[in-house]
Design a protein around this nucleic acid. Structure first.
Lengths: 263, 263
DNA sequence: GCGTCGAAGGGAACCGAGTGCCGTACAGGA
DNA sequence: TCCTGTACGGCACTCGGTTCCCTTCGACGC
């Protein structure tokens, strides 16, 4: 969707991960100019002139000027998704999303100076703040999607998932921003752990259960009728699902569960 | 910051009300073109041409093209702030912010057709979704600021304030979007009340304060939607998901939700 | 009646972000 | 040697948004 994916970009001399130097050069040039004269006072032409590359190349590495401020969030989001994927049904859901949120903190803590610099930028540039909101929103939706699946079948499952995801993000950001405001002094992990513990305390009670906790084979499925989605096993490792875009999600999940069998 | 504030625009003879007709004409022309040919396929020049005004006048009434999609959120935010300010220390804080959130719902419910139209637009235009995020963020910050003041001096006061504000917004939006997805049928207030009751249950010592006992709309999953023919355009109605057979089910659901967009 | 003043609107020119298209240079393979 | 794929640069274009200046029109004072 956006930039900064793990796809080894141009200049891939060695096959292993070889980060393109041009991308880093663009980030460095951009941040130098942003801190010197401000974000909006810096044009893309200024950045590429300082980096010594063509203007067109900037937009090959970053889909927009704002993206250069968040050069690694795409990788971090992928890491979070992978972390959630690696979980099992034995994990306590709320604890799992709290651990996932901790991953984001670690990424910020990896480079405190850069994080603080970016924080100051985003605080005073409305456009960057709006962009950051969309980034945070994607994290929140990843957490919520995990929780929605874990709460599937529960009463108010999606409501509870959305609430917890929002609270986790809010608690995480509360502690993170406090640390950033202090110029990245000390270790932020304890504060974030404390904040996330408050979330777990608030949502500790088990949700009012009404259905099976997770995928239980249903047999009332009416097969690939005219309206619902249809799943067909086409190979060993893949399942192809075709569904109307406006089909309710639960219907798609139902079809998936019957196609995949008891898991 | 944005448009549509109470500042009586041009033609404001008396400062009270006196809505400028040009503003309404621009909104009407814009929504007609947006629904006819899409948001990004409609230029500002198209809008002003249809409205029969000069291009410069558009930006006199709306600071950006996105603002024309949210012509009344500024007033609603002012209403919410006023409502929170009008409270007393006798008010239970969490209840107060829940009531404030209800104000937003009422504004949406005032004009269901318009709200549904706008919902469909924001769902499929990433730029509008990002803009809406910044709007929602301002509501959330207003709630959080109120709670921070009420919790001042408490242990973890700001943390608790941020968490509750985020949960309130998440719960409100969960119910609101469910109603919007159902094309604005029925009264959304019961669902929102139910969702907000969950927040108060989580963040208060109080038990799940009764609320509407039954009939909550389970995720808007009221069977296969019988919307219009929906003319199966090229690939619009089909989504293909490829996944390993041993992938956890929630991961598949996450992928689906990403592919299908917010529902 | 006449001149002036200020506010609303129109319009041309301009700026910068983002995109499409094409030319070039350099890699590796037949 | 030629061919092909790819990374990169350059040019031109669209469109959102802004700046500056013009016209219009009603209000007010003489």
């Amino acid at each position: 969707m956006s930039s900064s994916s793990a796809a080894a970009g141009p200049g891939g001399r060695t096959e292993a991960a070889a980060k393109p130097p041009m991308r880093d050069a663009l980030v460095a040039a951009a941040f130098r100019l942003f801190t010197e004269r401000g974000y909006e006072q810096t044009t893309v032409d200024d950045i590429v002139a300082l980096a010594g590359v063509g203007r067109r190349s900037f937009f090959r590495y970053f889909p927009s000027k704002e993206d250069v401020v968040f050069p690694d969030h795409e990788r971090c989001l992928a890491d979070m998704t992978a972390f959630l994927t690696a979980g099992t049904d034995a994990d306590e859901p709320v604890r799992r999303v709290c651990d996932a949120a901790r991953l984001v903190l670690l990424m910020y803590a990896e480079n405190p100076a850069f994080s603080v610099q970016r924080y100051r930028l985003t605080r005073q540039v409305p456009g960057l703040r709006a962009y950051e909101l969309s980034v945070v929103w994607r994290y929140e939706r990843a957490l919520a999607a995990y929780l929605r699946a874990r709460f599937a079948g529960h009463r108010d499952g999606t409501l509870r998932a959305d609430m917890i995801a929002a609270a986790v993000v809010a608690a995480h950001n509360n502690a993170l921003r406090s640390w950033l405001r202090s110029d990245g002094q000390g270790d932020p992990r304890a504060a974030v752990d404390h904040a996330l513990a408050q979330v777990r305390a608030a949502f500790a009670g088990a949700p009012p259960a009404s259905g099976p906790p997770a995928g239980e084979p249903r047999d009332g499925a009416e097969g690939p009728s005219e309206r619902g989605p249809s799943a067909a096993r086409s190979g060993e490792d893949v399942v192809v699902v075709v569904a109307r875009r406006d089909a309710p999600l639960w219907r798609v999940v139902q079809e998936l569960e019957t196609a995949l069998g008891p898991r």
